[in-house]
Design a protein around this nucleic acid. Structure first.
Length: 414
DNA sequence: TCTGGGGTCCTGTGGCTC
DNA sequence: TCTGGAGCCACAGGACCC
């Protein structure tokens, strides 16, 4: 039997974005708060309070559906700066208990408290103290899961939401866990769930017991991973160091579908400029450019190209993105979303001045300095400004707003 | 009234080199 | 010189997460 003696906590904030909004505006407490896209827009729900969930609203639900379910709900835009500030505070707070804090997302973290027990007591006592401190500092609640692996800790937190503390031991793997639906396990999404159901496997216990050859016949190499999930095993330990990002991207969904190639190019410039600014902030250069296009049919295609050398200037990356767009041949098709991302990172030390030309690099860095002082929108590249003239609601965080207006009235095809 | 944006990871395929 | 297999890499797409 798999036995681990580690003590891992998983901290999961309850309805994080909505809770932060309710904490800073007490008049919203007790009300159905929905954070996400604007009313009437094409966005989806990013987070919603438990009062909103009572109406059947959940994350990733299109806003128009949420409006229909709860017309009197409080719909708020995402204020990522505010949530990030709370997040930073929470991470600092967790660091008092152990050096081994792994930030999993803006509202989740793992703590390995194996070595903290002598100082702070058993894991449950630590969990309780963390909950109290989080509430005292920010007026929001969190759920804490305790387990011997990250997977068990996460499951335990999920089973005890909101504001609960739960524990899953190795013994529970062959006990309580068996009755859970497979979809409760992190890593088994709707598609896998459906494929498992086709085999008659709906609970974790069934997934534990199914003869391996049967699983392997259906899932190939993925079978082993599925079995590990069913047994609550996650191989990765809690890692406090934050690895280099693998990619940085920006994408935008148009308020109305477009088929204007010039506007698409201008939009690409703005997106690339934004992504590359982020790249330079991190001190990185990228070799690979990826283009993403979603048509009005919701069919999505991607194209990518790897350059001979890593670069950190907007121009070569933008030109590559445009070349990919041209090769794709949009033709008369209507485009719903366009995005660009860069990957294949190296630290952008000195080779850039050799490869890109010092003028290009110096220009990029000068632009970054101005933006750092006066905000991203203080400077825009010419094409990006063209795209922005089509903006409906400029976003505070992007040079390009998340919604662009479509073609002029009457220009749309039959 | 259709269905976001930011990511990571995995798989299958095809080209290239040895 | 030709051929096939192994290994690597780039690419495209999809599943999944918050």
């Amino acid at each position: 039997m798999f036995v681990s003696h580690r003590a891992i906590l998983h901290l999961d904030m309850d309805a994080f974005f909505a809770s932060v909004e309710q904490a800073r505006r007490p008049e919203l407490r007790g009300l159905p708060v929905i954070v996400g896209g604007e009313r009437g827009g094409r966005g989806v729900v990013s987070a919603c309070s438990y009062e909103a969930r009572a109406f059947g609203i959940h994350s990733a639900m299109p806003i128009f559906q949420a409006e229909r379910l709860c017309p009197r709900g409080v719909f708020l835009p995402v204020d990522m700066k505010a949530y990030a500030a709370v997040h930073r505070d929470l991470v600092e707070l967790l660091g008092h208990y152990t050096d081994l804090v792994e930030v999993a997302s803006i509202d989740e973290a793992y703590l390995d408290v194996t070595g903290s027990r002598r100082l702070f007591g058993p894991p449950r006592a630590i969990a309780l103290r963390v909950q109290e401190q989080v509430y005292d500092a920010h007026g929001i609640t969190c759920s804490v899961g305790i387990g011997t692996t990250k997977l068990l800790a996460k499951l335990a937190a999920g089973l005890n939401k909101p504001a609960g503390i739960g524990e899953l031991t190795d013994a529970d793997v062959h006990g309580r866990l068996r009755g859970l639906p497979v979809g409760e396990v992190c890593g088994i999404g709707p598609v896998t769930q459906e494929r498992l159901a086709a085999l008659g496997l709906t609970t974790v216990g069934m997934l534990q017991d199914v003869p391996f050859p049967l699983l392997a016949a259906a899932f190939g190499r993925g079978a082993h991973g599925l079995r590990q999930l069913a047994l609550g095993r996650s191989l990765s330990p809690v890692r406090s160091e934050r690895p280099l990002p693998k990619s940085v991207g920006r994408e935008v969904t148009f308020a109305d579908d477009i088929n204007d190639v010039e506007l698409l190019r201008a939009t690409l410039l703005s997106l690339t400029d934004n992504a590359v600014a982020e790249l330079r902030r991190k001190g990185l250069a990228a070799r690979t450019v990826a283009l993403k296009v979603r048509f009005n049919t919701f069919h999505t295609v991607g194209r990518r190209r790897t350059l001979a050398r890593p670069v950190s200037a907007t121009r070569p990356l933008y030109e590559t993105a445009v070349a990919l767009l041209d090769e794709l041949g949009i033709g008369a098709r209507w485009v719903r979303l366009v995005g660009v991302s860069v990957s294949g990172f190296t630290h952008n030390a000195f080779q850039l001045t050799l490869d890109e030309g010092w003028r290009e690099v110096a220009l990029g860095e000068a632009v970054d300095r101005v933006r750092e002082k006066y905000g991203f929108k203080a400077l825009k590249l010419a094409g990006g400004a063209v795209a922005e003239r089509h903006l409906e609601r400029p976003s505070p965080d992007l040079a390009l707003a998340p919604s662009l207006q479509g073609p002029p009235a009457g220009s749309r095809g039959a």
